[in-house]
Simulated scan of single mutants.
Amino acid sequence: MIGIIYVGSINRCPYLKNYTSCLDELSIDYEIISWDRSASTQNESVEFTAKKHHIFNYPSKEQRNPIYKISDFYRFSRYAKKIIRKQKYEKLIVLTTMSGVVILKELRTRYKNNFIFDYRDASFEYFGPFKSILNKIVVNSSFTSISSKGFLQVLPKNMNYVMAHNCSSFETCIDNNKIKNSKVVVGYIGGLRETDYMKSLVDRFGNDDRFEFIIHGGGENLQELIDYSEGISNVVFTGEYQELQKSKLVKEFDLICYNYPNSFVNDLALANKFYDGLLFRKPLIGNNSTYSGKLIEKQSVGISLDFEDKEYKKKLYNYYINYDAQSFEESCDKLLAEIQSENYFYKKKIKEFFVNGN
């Protein structure tokens, strides 16, 4: 029996499928231990065939100060450890850093070299004690899967890392029937978490006849952003969307906005938007001082700029008007082939771990 640990709702863990699909294919039983931090019923439309799903129902707001969340994580730690000791899983899958932090003792003893650590986000690695704990999780894992090679800048050197892209489908979409707009449609899609950043985008593109700025996504600050953009005709907030709608929404973009502001979290990560650009054949707008922005430029799949550049919009507009669509699509094909190869190796390593062990 395999145990899968995740300190959150499985609805927000799409990469869970990377492991459950392999387990299902190999006919290996598994259980999931997760934490519904909103203390509501988790969406059982998420497909998996776990023998049992242990859900820790305890409210803990994401925006709460990390200091005050320590007691919440301690409660989940006790819950998870109790189940792990009772069920005596043969091996573990540890999804995200905090899932490993709360069961660190078990990972260094009973499950040493007998778990996969799935690392998805940088968070508090600049804090010495936290980084020390992270290093211990990596060192004791059978291997660590990473969703961005940028993370290698903060992870321990010379460990066993496997690239795990946030991309499960490689079905590309080239919409040759898209009607050319009189304006360049810049599209943002995803959760609206950073209010100041979104307002800066509204300020940047608002009331410029060359652009139309469309934002698909929800969040606690959605109404505030709608109010902020009131009266600006070329800026539209559409609100939350269902994942099945994403393809249709992205098709209407000319460029995908992926110029996240600099932060410890953003600088090294590689978001789903990067893959959306490749699959839907939409050039990406990146931040030239982040890992993703440099990758966009290196792979010729968009343009990366300094957001404070006084000629930002001029350079962006000229890029779109003059870019070579055929050359861009060839760059997308080349990069997607590399990604697909790395994902194949990732799945191979998962299966080898389940079947052969260390």
Rank of each mutant, 00 (worst) to 15 (best):
Y19L: 05
S21M: 13
E25A: 15
D29R: 05
Y30L: 08
I33H: 08
R37M: 10
R37V: 03
T41F: 13
N43P: 13
V46R: 03
A50Q: 05
H53G: 04
N65M: 10
S71W: 13
K82P: 04
R85S: 12
R110I: 10
K112Q: 12
F117E: 03
D118L: 09
Y119M: 01
Y119S: 01
R120H: 12
S123V: 13
K131C: 12
N135S: 14
S147Q: 01
G150I: 07
L152I: 13
V162G: 04
C167S: 10
N176C: 12
V184G: 05
I189L: 00
S200M: 11
I214A: 01
H216K: 02
S233N: 15
G239L: 01
Q242R: 06
Q242G: 00
V250I: 13
F253Q: 03
I256K: 04
D267I: 14
D276V: 00
D276T: 05
G277W: 09
G293T: 03
I296T: 00
E297R: 11
I303M: 01
D306P: 03
E308W: 06
E311S: 14
Y323F: 14
E330R: 09
E338V: 09
E338I: 11
K349P: 02
F353Q: 00
F354I: 08
N356Y: 15
G357Q: 05
